[in-house]
Design a protein around this nucleic acid. Structure first.
Lengths: 257, 257
DNA sequence: GCGCCTCCATGACGCAGGTCAAAACGCCAC
DNA sequence: GTGGCGTTTTGACCTGCGTCATGGAGGCGC
């Protein structure tokens, strides 16, 4: 995102709100304080956000954004992971992405939600009404810039995913996923390969994985077993994968010739 | 995009540049003047854009953005259509979208281009250096808002495409494509069905269609033939399709149960 | 007109990955 | 420990779409 930031990092002077120590310190403890939208704001500014937000704690498996329903709110995830997905009437599901701490939800929103969101684990989040977002944008133009950055990054990701879904084989999809998940977990720098024997935590079920990669759970399972048999990965338990040979994985993922 | 506009349509006062009649009238003749970025600006303001732009005319089949190359420019398409795509080393290609008059290219850009762009016909466009874009953003903050709108719309589209690529059958992909192309050609309002017997122009080859829908040309050809045989469409010539029964197409596209 | 070339349609066949079915593996309650 | 349940793995089989191959239709130069 470096060069995008070049576009949006020349900060304008912004109105400084009255300090709100209570809010600032409440946000200090938040997992999202140094990520996403909130990271763009000073302690004083974030207090404004704090007062505009309704904080919610949701149990695992809660669908809090439903495709087709009126889009009334924006959300900022504080802790826990969320899956975003679209469904067909017959039950087929495509997970379009995952949102963790610091992720902002509601970007791809029109009058009606165009996707659904469901918590994968207990999740804490800040909820903003449309009206609250409007006033925040008016007050802090930097938020808009930040949002543009986020949206552009999402676009890059979804183009990669289109290539994966449209043109990659099952094994290539799995290899691509493992490497991108390593990046997401900060196991390696963006664009770089993780070190051999890096360990990943997968909070996803096989069903999630299948619906994200456009496969069935059986094919996901078989492909992972293949990679294990070939000695490229290890699977100590269902929610953990060790990347033994990242370079080999990358060769598969990128269809190196 | 109505509700997105709600977010970004409360216009801030912007600096009014000196009138530039020459520029304004040159832009008047441009197919993109009332679309995309330029549509957000007054005649006076667009003169500023005009002076920052280098105008180019490219023959059909020109690759003017190449994946992996340093991202030096932004583009605004004035006339003609462009395909955007990502490729794998072995030649597999996924078209991630099409850009026509008024479309702005370079949104999903980092330091290196993450996709390629190729003209499908002779194309006229305005080219902006990164530096020029920076100064334009500084001068006209409204451009940023517009860009955010555009990016959000692109996100909605690409989520739809992920559902299509990950979970739809060949015939469903074709039906979905025909309906979305009808919307794009303004044959019908966004979200509405085109009237029976609406006619579409397809500037795409079967190869483009296949690479956009994640299929092979043979499957595209066969699926179109099926729809024709079933009486849902007519194909008077290779670049034209008549939608005889849009409702039936929609039932297939949305997998109505 | 004719030859050439590119794109498209269609048929025959093969295979990657989907479907169906059955173990195997946790994991929790008791 | 034992039993029950949900998830994952593995196997056997099937099919939708890819691959390969052939013929036809249009476009263009001469």
């Amino acid at each position: 995102m470096t060069s995008l930031n070049k576009i949006t990092d020349f900060r304008r002077p912004v109105a400084i709100n009255l300090a709100n120590r209570t809010a600032a310190s409440a946000c200090d403890d938040c997992g999202a304080r140094r990520h996403g939208l909130c990271d763009a704001l000073s302690d004083d500014e974030v207090g404004f956000l704090f007062r505009a937000a309704q904080r919610q704690t949701l149990p695992a498996g809660t669908v809090f954004i439903e495709e087709g329903e009126p889009a009334a709110y924006f959300y900022n995830v504080n802790s826990g992971n969320v899956r975003l997905f679209k469904s067909l009437p017959d039950g087929r599901r495509q997970i379009t992405g995952f949102a963790g701490p610091g992720h902002f939800l509601g970007l791809a929103a029109t009058e009606k939600n165009v996707f659904s969101a469901e918590t994968m684990e207990p999740v804490r989040l800040c909820r903003f009404s449309r009206a609250a977002m409007l006033s925040m944008f008016a007050e802090y133009p930097i938020l808009e810039r930040k949002l543009l950055d986020v949206a552009m990054h999402e676009l890059v990701i979804s183009q990669q995913q289109m290539l994966l879904l449209g043109r990659k084989t099952a094994i290539e999809r799995i290899a691509s996923f493992l490497l991108s998940w390593a990046e997401r977990q900060d196991v390696c720098a963006s664009g770089a390969l993780p070190k051999p024997h890096s360990s990943l935590t997968l909070p996803l079920s096989r069903t999630d994985l299948a619906d994200y990669l456009g496969l069935t759970i059986e094919t996901v399972s078989r492909s992972l077993s293949n990679l294990k048999r070939e000695g490229l990965i290890e699977i100590p338990n269902i929610h953990e994968v060790v990347l033994l040979r990242p370079q080999a994985l990358s060769d598969i993922a990128e269809a190196a010739v």
